[in-house]
Nucleic acid binder design. Structure first.
Lengths: 177, 177
DNA sequence: TCCTGCAGCTAAAGCCGTTAGCCAAAAGCT
DNA sequence: AGCTTTTGGCTAACGGCTTTAGCTGCAGGA
């Protein structure tokens, strides 16, 4: 149910994810969906939780055995690959309030952050700066991925190359120049 | 008309910007709006053009007389202030295709990019890397601003401090470590 | 065996965007 | 001034979307 919604969102875009479309995909009439999800908002939340969980394991496995710059590059690649492969799922994760603390969303979010925290452990950062570094990485990766997914990079230069360049810059920056 | 739509989008969020709501705001029945805009998509495009134009002048004036790190910090501050003050307008700018080349959107986009290009001129970058640097700055600022606007930074550390930290990192990175 | 609850269905309401077609007033031309 | 055209509003209506209400059959446990 949620999995089918996630697939559909990846194919048509989160904005075009419709209850009717999902019903058709799973071979059911639209109102029947409400026996499984509370509504469209609930559906999107669950897709978001799925996306956070999946991306967390993707990044987590990508950085296994790596440290420092290698870990950063691997995490960045894994993150971007996930977002490009699953744009609908990822779009679901942005701009949602975590309702309650038993929300599976926060658990999934924490796991995703943990993967990036692991990357930062390879750099000698003062503890007080770890949160700043985490936010910086998240902003840069999130920004790049969403801009690319939205066709935000229209002009010439190669996008992969730009991404590598950005990762290099972040690595230099994290190593305290 | 577009200005009213931009205000409304800032207040209720771009996703909740509705033709009926805009009509009520300007004191008119809904179908009358179609004498001024071609439809909702057209409305959003025009709001986006407004946002790009406004943010371009905000950043442009902020960096006047500054160079290097000072210019970068000023541009970053101006950009973030604009996005936080006008989240609806800014949200309109992400994820749109520029239709025609006479589209006022591309002109406004070029002006916005020019402001960041001016900042980069204060660093000694090889010409081949300017596009990469531009994309990096855009990703980092866009990511940070949208994550903050979406209340994406839930945990403790001070957000302004994190932003400053990120700008420092970018500055170091741009100065080729 | 009976009964409870799950998972589907139809019907219908309400909101949104959009189009068609009408009309008055303002603006512009002779 | 008088006619004409454009402008900007209106009502009515359609189609699509989400969501609720209420019914029904069926599976699995008491």
């Amino acid at each position: 149910m949620v999995a089918a919604g996630a697939e559909l969102a990846d194919e048509v875009g989160l904005g075009a994810l419709t209850m009717g479309g999902l019903a058709e995909r799973v071979g059911v009439r639209t109102p029947s969906l409400y026996k499984h999800v509370a509504g469209q908002e609930d559906l999107v939340r669950r897709i978001a939780a799925l996306a956070l969980s999946e991306s967390a394991v993707a990044i987590g496995t990508a950085i296994q055995g790596l440290a420092g710059r290698d870990a950063l590059a691997a995490a960045a690649q894994a993150f971007r690959a996930y977002v490009l492969a699953h744009p609908g799922r990822y779009a679901a994760t942005v701009g949602l309030e975590p309702a309650g603390q038993d929300d599976p969303l926060v658990a999934a979010g924490v796991r995703a952050l943990a993967a990036f925290r692991a990357v930062l452990r390879g750099y000698d950062l003062p503890a007080a700066e770890e949160d700043h570094a985490l936010r910086t990485l998240r902003s840069a990766f999130h920004g790049f991925a969403t801009l690319q997914a939205a066709r935000g990079f229209q002009w010439s230069a190669d996008v992969d190359e730009s991404f590598g360049w950005m990762v290099d810059l972040l690595d230099r920056g994290l190593r305290r120049a």
